[in-house]
């Protein structure tokens, strides 16, 4: 079993022009063991994507205090690629488009990056794995010859993120709004992909706004995040309850002094 521990994490975002730092994550604790499925929900602008980027090591997000550890080893001094090779994966809310690199070429390079020079994947094994996963995700092989995410529809980008996850088989997969932009059928297909990886060596952290995703990927824990902290943790039932009552209600119940984006 592996464990991802986030301890009293504070993260600030740096404005590229003014270099001003704004604190977004304000003391967050979370422990995820492989074998578990977690979900984070919370109002817009609460810091959910910020948390996921900070875990992955995006250079614009500065950890000002606290720690992120995998099996007691701090990630803070590690580069983005080192974190990935330790088994972290982030399906991004907004995947980047890269022209001139085919999806195929990229995926092969990513698979081989995990392997020592001696253990590079043969093209045959790679293709077999790829075809199996494409099939599960209802993706056509034509997507492989296209440039990485270039011109992909919103839903195609999300599927492509899951395809990468299935190929790379991480220990900890963070899925940032993997359900947004997916049609009803696609949602099931993507959920199937995630569920296919489920097992004692795999953990998921889903960030979502919709309870429906949790019908397909059943969480063990649901965390509610507001203003840079986890304010409540429960089971799948918590998500259903929240769907009825809304975030403002929860905030008032907890007696928090937080302004939500959609309030005036």
């Amino acid at each position: 079993m592996s464990t991802l521990v986030i301890r009293q994490l504070h993260v600030a975002i740096v404005d590229n022009e003014t270099k001003k730092q704004t604190e977004i994550i304000k003391g967050l604790d979370l422990t995820i063991n492989t074998g578990e499925t977690h979900a984070i929900m919370g109002p817009n602008g609460t810091g959910k994507s910020t948390l996921s980027q900070a875990i992955m090591g995006h250079p614009n997000y500065i950890v000002t205090s606290g720690d992120i550890l995998v099996d007691n080893v701090s990630l803070l001094a590690k580069t983005v690629d080192e974190r990935a090779r330790l088994g972290l994966f982030l399906a991004m809310q907004y995947p980047v488009e890269i022209s001139g690199i085919t999806n195929f070429e990229f995926m092969r390079a990513a698979m081989n990056a995990q392997r020592s020079p001696k253990e590079q994947l043969s093209i045959g094994n790679f293709m077999a794995e790829l075809q199996r996963n494409l099939k599960m995700l209802n993706m056509s092989e034509a997507m492989l010859e296209r440039y990485l995410n270039e011109g992909f529809s919103g839903g195609e980008k999300k599927r492509n993120e899951i395809l990468q996850m299935m190929m790379l088989r991480p220990k900890f997969a963070i899925l940032d709004e993997i359900d947004s932009g997916l049609d009803i059928d696609a949602l099931q297909v993507v959920a199937q992909g995630v569920n296919a990886l489920a097992g004692p060596k795999f953990a998921t952290l889903m960030i979502t706004h919709y309870q429906r995703l949790l019908d397909y990927i059943k969480p063990d824990y649901v965390h509610i995040m507001m203003d840079g902290r986890i304010v409540k943790t429960g089971t799948g039932a918590l998500a259903q309850e929240l769907e009825q009552t809304g975030y403002a209600h929860l905030r008032d119940e907890l007696g928090l002094d937080i302004k939500l984006v959609d309030e005036d």
Partner: peptide, 15 residues
């Protein structure tokens, strides 16, 4: 493009 580099590195590719 730094975002492109980040994306690729997040899949385990060295800088």
């Amino acid at each position: 493009d730094k975002q492109q580099l980040y994306y690729l590195m997040s899949r385990g590719l060295s800088k």
